[in-house]
Each structure stands twice: as structure tokens, then as C-alpha cells.
Computed example of a mutant assay.
Amino acid sequence: MKKNILLVLALFVIMVSCKKKFDDLPIVVTPPVLPPVITTQKIKDLTTTFKFGAAVKTANLKSESAYDNTFKGEYNQLSAEFEMKMNFIWNSETSYNFTNVDYLVNYAQQNNMTVHGHTLLWYQSFPDWFKNANYDSVAFESKVKVYIETVVGRYKGKIKSWDVANEIFNDDGTMRIESQIQGKFKDPIGFVGRCFKYAAIADPDAKLFYNDYNVVLAAGKRTAMKNMAIRFKNAGIPIHGLGEQFHYRISTSQTQINSGFADLVSSGLLIHLSEIDCKVNTTNSPTYVVNSTDLQKQSDFFKNIVKLYNAIPGNQKFAMTTWGITDKNTWLRDSGNGNKEYPLLFDENYGKKPAYVGFLDGLK
């Protein structure tokens, strides 16, 4: 009898210990297997009045056949996700690394794509050597001028359009304080305008854009962009278009998008929806599980913005560009939530998502 009691107690201790160990393990949530989307239509075949682009990485094109095949099979315009930014090209005052840019430009030519250059001037992409040189405004502009002339000139006729400047405004329309040009110049907008001129001289046929995020929601930023464009036009400075990155989420107000987009279009310039993605994990939850309801909301988001874009005057249509191809390697998965974001048109296995169908529906 005593042995039996001891045996029961031992079993109880083991069970409690095991339960504690299991309780301490992280909960692994497996996303549901959702039915594949079947469609033989391709977006690029229906976007006859504007280009359908994606931001890509050289390493993915070279190393993954599914990435390569999806891109060249589904898109007709190329943007570099990061390899055309200044810090990836400008190694020193007289040293440039064009290896990856050359590859991307040649790839586009071989696959009958146009190339949009992103970006010549961005506060986060000034190389460390350049920032540490602490140039005064005259030397600063002289170096930037040579850089723009060198890069745009090298790809004259091959890169058809450029984001000359990127993200120089806060949402309220003031200049970004972290920008290298803020504080360097008494008239920072004047400096930006001269950079547009340098690009135009290097390639007179290139379309030149200013690009920023949150444009349709931030009235102050939108007004600053339009006012800058008006100033440039009045001064004879070539500016052809405005880019709205369109990093939004399924919960973003469609009413606000509609209103802000109409105001942006009133600029009369080319409009580029330049870095489109749509977050479904709207609370940035580490335990989020993708589901059919949110994917349908994402599909509706794409349908609505495509309808908006497709309805603008033909002479203002330029391109719609997704920031990436597949959910597997979206930049948003580096933002702290692991694999808990699914913002693009293709899933991890390059299957077409409901968002792809939403995009198609918006074109009809």
C-alpha cells in the first residue's frame, strides 16, 4: 500500500513537471491553408495606359527562379528596392560601384521592361564618407551635382524616369530636420530644384519625379509638394511627376484616400503610385494569423485604389508599382513582426492572392 502511494505521488510530480515545461514553450500558430486563387489573366496585359512595376533585389533575381520568373512574367517596369540609392553606388568622391545597377538595367532591357530610377537624393542614403566630410553648402552641392550628372548620364536613354528627390517633407509640410540639406542651405527647396536641373541636363528625355509617403492622408505634405512643383514650373525647372508611395493598411480610410488622391491629381502632373503594399496585421500583433476575411479586405483595398488610378486623365498616368513581389521577402517582415505581415499580391509560394484579383477587378 505504501509503495502504491509513493508511486502515485511520483507520477503526480512528473505530470506537474511536464505540464510546466509544456506551458513554458512558445505557442506556435500555423496559418490556415487558404484556397489558391485561379486566374489566367495578367495585370500587365490590362494596364495598357500605364506601367505595372515592382521593386526588386538583384540577389533574389539571381538566386531564385520563382522570383525571377514571376517578375518577368507579371510586370513590365522595374524599380530597385535599394541598389540605385546613393550609398550603394557612391563609394568615395571619385569611386562608383555600378555593378548591380548595370545588371538590373540589362535585365530590364532583356525582358522588355522600363526602368524607374529610385532615388538620387534621399536623406537616409548619403554615404557616411560624404556626411563625415562636413562640406559647406557650395562644396556639398558641387559634389552632388557631379554625382547626379555621372549616374543619370551613364544610364541616359536606359533609365526612363527618376525620383530626383525622396522624402524631404514632414507630414505637416515642413522640411525634415534630419535631412542633410536642412540647415545646409538657406533655401533647401532651391537646392532641390537645381538637382532637378542637373538631372534634366544629363538626360533631357527622362521623366523627373518627387516621391514621398503618406501623401493622400497628410494635407500639409501634399500642399508642400504641390507648391514646390508650382515653384519649379514657374522657374522653368523640369518636374514631370509626383510619387505617392502608398504604404497603407486594410483599415486606412478609403474616404480619406479618395479625397487626398483627388487633390494630388489636381497638380496636373504625372502620378506614380510608387511603393504600394497593404498591411493586414493592422495592430502589429506578434500572434496575428492571416485569414480569409482580412485577405478579402486587402483585395478590396487594391480594387479601390486601382479604380481611382485608372480613372485619372490619361496624360497623368505613369505607373503603379508594388514594393516587392512576394510576401516572403517584403520589407515589412524586417519591421519587428517576423512573418506576421502579408502585404503584397503574391504569397510565399508565388501563388496569386485575392489581392491580385482585386487589382484585376479594379481595371475592369
Rank of each mutant, 00 (worst) to 15 (best):
R154C: 15
G336A: 02
I276M: 15
Q109N: 09
H247L: 03
K51N: 13
F50K: 05
A319Q: 04
L308G: 01
K352L: 09
A10I: 09
G260Q: 11
V164F: 08
S79L: 12
A262N: 10
F12V: 07
N211P: 02
Y103R: 06
N166L: 03
F140V: 05
A80M: 08
E64H: 09
N337G: 02
N349L: 11
F261Y: 03
V16D: 14
L61P: 00
K20I: 15
N227E: 13
N91P: 08
W331Q: 11
E244Q: 05
T40W: 10
T326H: 02
L273G: 09
K221H: 02
K160I: 00
T321S: 00
L7A: 09
T283A: 02
V138P: 09
G117S: 04
I181W: 11
F209H: 06
H247T: 01
Y198K: 07
S299M: 14
T255N: 12
W90N: 02
S17L: 00
L6R: 08
K131P: 13
K145L: 11
V265W: 11
T114Q: 07
T283R: 08
K51S: 07
L121M: 09
C278E: 05
P188F: 09
I5F: 15
T99L: 12
V16Y: 15
T330R: 02
V115K: 02
I14W: 05
T174Q: 03
T223M: 03
A59V: 14
K233H: 12
Y350S: 01
I230V: 01
F169T: 02
K233R: 08
A206E: 09
